[in-house]
Amino acid sequence: MLTPEEIDDIRHAIATLPHKQAAAIEALAIVQRHRRWIDDQALRDVGEHLEMSVAALEGVATFYNHLFRRPVGRHVVRLCDSVTCWMLGGDALRSGLRATLGVDLGETTPDDRFTLLTIPCLGCCDRAPALMIDDDLHTDLTPGALAGLLRRYD
């Protein structure tokens, strides 16, 4: 079941569009904002709400990088793996993250605190290397700075 808050948020999204199916991406993102990820039941519920087939909605959900069809931790780390960050020490950051968190790319720490992902160019290449944790951008990073940075997210 979608919660009243979710339904309200989805109604706002639909209001700016000519028909409700056009809100499919937005609706999935809304559900994810409330629940961290989109499980099968939530997908079915959104489908019912928008009068869309599960297959059509699944096609949308799996197309986009930021819609999660698998559980993620409380914080999502997105490490830039594009060209300038690669050139300026992105690989060392990746190793540092692996070592500090004890998980590989695509994995979540056993305490459910962090999920480690990559993301294409974050659009701050003049301050490379960079990563995001949740909504926060962190730039000009070194592996030595990682432990202190991660401590700010529990």
Partner: peptide, 11 residues
């Protein structure tokens, strides 16, 4: 959308 690697102007 500015996702072209190396691009940071529209930001």
């Amino acid at each position: 959308d500015e996702m072209e690697p190396g691009t940071f102007k529209d930001r």
